[in-house]
Nucleic acid binder design. Sequence first.
DNA 1: GTGGTCTAGACCACA
DNA 2: GTGGTCTAGACCACG
Lengths: 131, 131, 131, 131
Amino acid sequence: MAWIFSSDRPIYLQLTDRVISGILTGEYPMGSKLPSVREFAEIASVNPNTVQRALAELEAVGLIDNQRTTGKFVTEEEERITMAREKRGSALARDFLKNMTDLGYDSDQVSQLLREAQEEKEEDEDGYAGY
Amino acid sequence: MAWIFSSDRPIYLQLTDRVISGILTGEYPMGSKLPSVREFAEIASVNPNTVQRALAELEAVGLIDNQRTTGKFVTEEEERITMAREKRGSALARDFLKNMTDLGYDSDQVSQLLREAQEEKEEDEDGYAGY
Amino acid sequence: MAWIFSSDRPIYLQLTDRVISGILTGEYPMGSKLPSVREFAEIASVNPNTVQRALAELEAVGLIDNQRTTGKFVTEEEERITMAREKRGSALARDFLKNMTDLGYDSDQVSQLLREAQEEKEEDEDGYAGY
Amino acid sequence: MAWIFSSDRPIYLQLTDRVISGILTGEYPMGSKLPSVREFAEIASVNPNTVQRALAELEAVGLIDNQRTTGKFVTEEEERITMAREKRGSALARDFLKNMTDLGYDSDQVSQLLREAQEEKEEDEDGYAGY
DNA sequence: GTGGTCTAGACCACA
DNA sequence: GTGGTCTAGACCACG
């Protein structure tokens, strides 16, 4: 059950990403209580301190509200969530574009590559039959 | 004059990226001699060890030929270069797509975002007059 | 309707502060009966234990008299109130001054800053029409 | 030699405050290298992790630049420093004023209290003869 | 030697 | 039971 982390990035960052994903996709709905730090640690087979650190990032951005002794909650301000999403998304797009340009790709080629990656991905998903 | 490096990735990796870019864009043409390690170190104001490591990386991939006494040269085998480029490009595309999907974007929205990023970029380039 | 608490300080301390304020400003006049623990808990949407703790703090300082069966009353000894006020006030002033000095402000600059803060505050009050 | 920390606030916050003070007062001049994390830890008799955390806050604000393996440096951008100072100063002033107002002090009384605190402080300094 | 990350384990305040 | 802080100690990548 332990979550899988790649070793080329700090675990705590991968954790935050994962939780952000969860928030954006509705796995952790707006206003809902997140699993406790200790639960998260158990689920991900990671030290509670690491979880703490991961969630601290999210508090800083305002995606998570802390209610001292009750637990951590996904913010109820939809605005924060969408803003975070857009900010992140366009940053990713910008960086991606920059990298591709440095590699000498023009925008048509980029689109082409993305289409291929998309198909590749769908095949994988088919392969695993929905898992 | 020192090159600019972000502190969130090893300098040597940023160096390899830069050199790869240079090769693909023709700044360092096929078969041409690269600056010496020391020159590179000077140009980028970086420790020669770091340059060494970066270039070693490129030799490993076969993008660079080491001719012991004369220096290091960009490979003449075009195939290697294009292969390296494609490998890198599709890896970037795959990762990018994965990240965007995690954020809850579908492929249309991704294309949209890329278009925006593209325009934004062009404006910047106009603004800075090619810098 | 719940009172608002910042999450960087224990709620019970923020509660005591609030009640002290209330006493000093006359919201809870000398000798008057305070709301019951349960009422307070309801008003502030806070755990009764927390209220209990907050009020215990005030009893310890002598600002509140506990009359077992009838409830808790603001002390009638004006002296205690003014003393508490002065103690708190000069403590605040001392800490504030220390902090500002650490930041490299001299006393003139401190006065200046306070004046600005004062004006800023008044504008807010104007803007919100007394809220 | 160990630095003294009050127990009512996290050590790491007190550390950051201390370092900020050091930067603002010129103890750590602009562009200068800070003591290494381990040195700081030794000086303050605190765990290196704690120092790390303290300094991380400062990096986040941009007061400190990280040069991966060389050490941490005070930023050279004076602007950041003065901005941080002003932001912090006016926040302190605002909070202080709010607290005093809640205690029922008007601005004249506040000034008065500050003057007293100032004198008190100077006496202390005289007492310790410049320590 | 520099910073960065992670773990294990402990203790605390709060509700 | 909740989060928060701290320590000790280890390991790693980088230069």
